[in-house]
Design a protein around this nucleic acid. Structure first.
Lengths: 189, 189
DNA sequence: CGGATTTCTTAAACTACCTTAAGAGGTAGA
DNA sequence: TCTACCTCTTAAGGTAGTTTAAGAAATCCG
């Protein structure tokens, strides 16, 4: 139940057995079904989620009800509305399950305690967020300098396991195009 | 010389006088002239920069020589090629001065020592990077769900002091459009 | 000061991507 | 098993943003 998350952490910091025990005791294991909602826009996000199995999606809905997929979280990924979680303000995004999934929750309160009890975790989450930042920066560059077709090519190369599991509409909303246009892009090949 | 950066840090962590002295001793103050290059694509980025005065721009150049402005750094901003700096791999971006500027440099080596000597800085840079991550995420959402005109409106509201100081071409490359189109957007009002 | 270079504007023709619509599978629920 | 409702495709017509080009305005520099 905790082997995946402990391996994830071990990639960046070393924990003693005692620290591992302390950390895992803070986690809550939950099972969610396909389409279950973890977070709604407007709610304060109180959890940082780690996906153990299945798939979770983060997306934004604008005034015209158009969805933009912010990220897909599959096994071994951390996912949350970072701004809402860290500042305890209303979320701008939705989080929901694309498949039946097993998710570990770390609450804001637990995280604040964790930083005090095991300060090494400051380093761990700094690295996790650093990597997330760099990925978003690369995505901004790609969105601004490439056509939708090029972005789609990169997406299927980078996330081949995700392409199989999500709908065309969701991929289109990640790329920032309509499903119809993605369909014609696919047909070109 | 260090008052701005110490105030910047004090917003997130408290330092003793001794820690302040240790920290500022790691910094190198440099003066750069307009158009001076701080980092070239392909070089390993060895410095994290803090802008004391003036303005610095980070941008990406694609195979067709098209520039995409990644960020503008004015007084009180941290700027670097994060991926290159942290992993000591070749940079994907350029950094150069838009005006004569005063910049403080923190080297990778100094930063590694800083984390050991004053672990509080793990927290500080985690927060700095968190904020940068959230900004990039919002930018992705805006790029995917808004028209160029809407993004321009938001840009001039959010960075009114920057608009005055940089060229139209640079703003256009931040928004991901051509200077010609930005010119027509401006003429519409 | 004057010439060179860069920046900005305008406009016409073009392309990437959107909108609307209609039909063909697939899947889920009564 | 039938019906309802998503998902995906295809295609025609529309719009946001690009390309090319040329001139005007501003800035740089000897």
């Amino acid at each position: 139940m905790y082997s995946l998350i402990l391996a994830n952490i071990a990639r960046h910091i070393s924990l003693t057995d005692k620290e591992k025990t302390y950390f895992t005791a803070l986690l809550k294991n939950i099972q969610v079904n396909k389409k279950d909602i973890l977070l709604k826009e407007g709610q304060v996000c109180t959890k940082f989620y780690f996906v153990n199995s299945g798939a979770v999606r983060a997306y934004y809905v604008d005034r015209q009800d158009k969805e933009t997929t912010i990220m897909f979280g599959v096994a071994d990924w951390w996912i949350t509305d970072m701004y809402s979680f860290l500042n305890q303000v209303p979320a701008i995004m939705y989080l929901d399950a694309l498949e039946n999934s097993e998710v570990l929750e770390l609450s804001k309160e637990s995280m604040d305690n964790l930083y005090i009890e095991v300060p090494k975790f400051e380093r761990f989450f700094r690295i996790i967020i650093q990597n997330a930042y760099v990925r978003e920066q690369v995505r901004v560059i790609q969105n601004l300098s490439m056509t939708a077709e090029e972005r789609y090519e990169i997406f299927i190369k980078k996330y081949p396991h995700i392409v199989q599991r999500v709908t065309l509409k969701q991929i289109a909303s990640y790329l920032g195009i309509t499903p119809e246009f993605l369909s014609t892009i696919r047909a070109r090949k």
